[in-house]
Design a protein around this nucleic acid. Structure first.
Length: 113
DNA sequence: TGCTTGACAGAAG
DNA sequence: CCTTCTGCCAAGC
């Protein structure tokens, strides 16, 4: 029995998008998450790139705290210079190399239960 | 139909 | 620490 189909149906693509947007909207202020983690929680591990694709091309994602989504090493999205300012405004600290201090700000929904 | 691209991740140099 | 390469998978051309 196959838990994770390799290609998505329209229904699953919609479920994936819905899950991603839902997870992102739940990221607390001053915390960040990475793409791989969101993809895993959404039910499709290794679809990290699809998460970024969804956040960028889905209308309405702009109103979500998508600026709290960074890659696994705490680096902000390329071509999105103001993302750092948005995070700093929430109290997120950055290292000298321009990366988010993941050890302090990484948030996992599992830690809520 | 087939190659390239990308808001990624991980390993290697 | 940084850059480059590979694996990944959907979207674009």
């Amino acid at each position: 029995m196959k838990d994770f189909p390799d290609n998505m149906n329209a229904e699953e693509a919609r479920a994936f998008r819905d899950a991603v947007l839902s997870i992102v909207s739940q990221i607390p202020r001053g915390r960040v998450m990475n793409y791989g983690l969101i993809a895993t929680l959404a039910g499709w591990p290794s679809h990290a790139r699809m998460v970024g694709h969804t956040l960028r091309y889905t209308p309405g994602a702009e109103r979500l705290p998508c600026h709290r989504v960074v890659n696994v090493v705490g680096r902000t999205a390329p071509g999105w210079s103001w993302q750092r300012s948005l995070l700093e405004d929430e109290g997120v600290t950055f290292c000298a190399n321009g990366r988010v201090d993941m050890r302090r700000h990484l948030w996992e929904p599992a830690m809520e239960e």
